[in-house]
């Protein structure tokens, strides 16, 4: 099962508590929205999952295994973190080429994903010339290279124009419908309410709401109200 499992994940930096006992799951066939204000710990949680940062305690597992022990990570998990993840002076195509090479993916796939995310025409230009939205699309193309079973996307709609946001919504829906696991973080609540199946809300490093969209929004007008109730006062937890 293509499952992402976070179990009592805790991260401290010196005396600062970044994450406290973060526990939730992202399941196959569903889009899990990981919501919270800026600085709440969304990126930290995803970075630990991807083996970029270490947890102080607790676990974040991909199919029951730490990311760092995956044999072929690019085919298992496609990851998008802040920005394109490419060096400014390389072209978009050259960036995707080395990623493909390091993951043992055929170079032809590079052209496919460029086409898929709609930046094929800019593929020969240096990343430094890309707009924020194009950089985001390049990052997404990188995530999709290995045709992965799971997608972990940090703020994927950041910098996308309305057209791009609409496209990514549809794309992620298709991915989930095909049985894949999609975990995406966002601080933009409105953009997400129509897209996600499950909602996890984090505030100051703690999970304050977690469940299917319908459950989390019960008693509220919409996801936005539920979100503000959850992060506003902890008593609104349930």
């Amino acid at each position: 099962m293509a499952m992402l499992t976070f179990e009592r994940l805790t991260k401290r930096r010196r005396t600062k508590h970044i994450l406290s006992e973060v526990t939730f799951q992202a399941r196959p066939g569903r889009i899990t929205g990981f919501l919270g204000p800026n600085g709440a710990g969304k990126t930290s949680t995803l970075r630990i999952l991807l083996g970029l940062d270490r947890a102080t305690s607790g676990t974040a597992l991909v199919d029951g295994r730490p990311y760092r022990t995956l044999r072929d990570p690019a085919r298992k998990v496609g990851a998008l973190l802040d920005g394109s993840g490419a060096h400014r002076s390389r072209t978009g195509r050259a960036h995707l080429r080395w990623v493909a090479r390091s993951a043992g993916i055929d170079a032809a796939r590079v052209e496919d994903v460029l086409e898929l995310v709609g930046i094929a025409e800019a593929a020969g230009s240096r990343v430094a010339t890309y707009s924020l939205g194009m950089g985001q699309r390049l990052g997404l193309a990188t995530a999709l290279l290995g045709d992965p079973e799971m997608l972990v996307l940090d703020e994927p709609v950041n910098g996308l124009d309305p057209d791009g946001i609409r496209w990514i919504r549809g794309f992620l829906r298709d991915q989930a419908d095909a049985g894949r696991t999609v975990l995406l973080s966002s601080h933009l609540i409105g953009e997400l309410s129509e897209t996600v199946d499950d909602v996890v809300v984090i505030r100051a490093g703690k999970i304050v709401a977690n469940g299917p969209l319908a459950d989390v929004t019960t008693g509220y007008r919409n996801l936005e109200d539920a979100f503000f109730a959850a992060i506003g006062q902890r008593s609104a937890d349930r």
Partner: peptide, 13 residues
């Protein structure tokens, strides 16, 4: 424009 995105993230994933 893109806050703190660095290639090392891509490399290590």
């Amino acid at each position: 424009e893109s806050a703190g995105g660095r290639q090392i993230n891509t490399t290590l994933t």
